[in-house]
């Protein structure tokens, strides 16, 4: 369960900088990242070298963006639950058995574990690099430029903008519970926690009602005004295409080479 990250932590994921990767328009980066991840997933798992090349490509991006290795490594922790799952694979999968270090393991399961570890890790690192080089606000602007329905991007914008506020509200409730001697130990705690969640919903929703009225009084008509436009030139699209193009060659080679 990947809990433990706050909605309010979104802006702390961004590593400020002025590298060429930072300066690319968000929509270019989004398309490049999505294409790259799909190519990685479509690569046959038997080609170990291909995944090595993908990792090198990502390392090159990180180096260009001057994202420290430690920052990426610390955030990769998010994948711990599925690493645990991957380690189960060789024990539960069917098919031919091989003996490794005295353990009977399924060969197919070993391949499956490798497949999840390699592709999952590459995917996680790609997302980390995207979030580290693009401000959340710009990322949403990029989604908007890619013709995502307005309503969806608006919901996402409000969620990010008020995530901090709602998370802080939850934090205050936690302090209030603790200062009254509450300790979540067993199932009986559920009642208290659920009441907090109910109160949190009411406060969030009523805040939404107030925000809506405030917006109406400032002339909101269902569309958000575009204050900061991000347009991309052909050169920028080409620059962003470098990563997926290189990856496409690797994928092609991996499929065609014996």
């Amino acid at each position: 369960m990947g809990a433990g990250h706050a909605a309010g932590a979104a802006h702390r994921l961004y590593v400020p900088g002025a590298s060429p990767v930072h300066r690319l328009p968000p929509q270019c980066k989004l398309v490049a990242v999505l294409a790259f991840v799909l190519l990685v997933v479509a690569t046959p798992r038997e080609r170990f070298w291909a995944f090595g090349v993908y990792a090198l490509l990502l390392a090159a991006v990180a180096a260009t963006a001057r994202i420290p290795f430690g920052t990426v490594a610390r955030r990769v922790v998010i994948e711990v639950p599925f690493v645990a799952f991957a380690f189960l694979m060789p024990f539960v999968a069917s098919g031919e058995k091989v003996t490794v270090l005295g353990l009977e393991l399924s060969e197919n399961g070993l391949w499956g574990a490798w497949n999840i570890l390699a592709k999952g890790t590459l995917g996680v690192v790609t997302s980390i690099l995207l979030a580290a080089t693009t401000e959340p606000r710009l990322l949403l602007l990029g989604i908007d430029r890619l013709r995502m329905p307005q309503l969806l991007t608006q919901i996402a914008t409000f969620m990010l903008r008020y995530g901090d506020v709602v998370a802080a509200e939850l934090g205050r409730m936690k302090v209030a519970r603790a200062s009254r001697g509450f300790e979540g130990r067993d199932l009986r705690a559920t009642r208290v926690l659920a009441k907090s969640i109910g109160a949190l919903f009411l406060r969030s929703y009523e805040r939404g009602e107030r925000v809506h009225l405030a917006m109406l009084s400032r002339g909101y008509d269902g569309r958000m005004p575009v204050v900061h436009d991000v347009s991309a030139t052909a050169a920028q699209w080409t620059a962003a295409a470098a990563l997926p193009l290189a990856a496409a060659f690797v994928t092609l080679a991996a499929w065609t080479m014996p």
């Binding site: 919901i155 409000f158 969620m159 008020y162 919903f201 969030s204 929703y205």
Partner: peptide, 10 residues
């Protein structure tokens, strides 16, 4: 937009 956004944050 505002209500669904706040509910998503919730």
């Amino acid at each position: 937009a505002p209500l669904a956004g706040l509910t998503a944050a919730f």
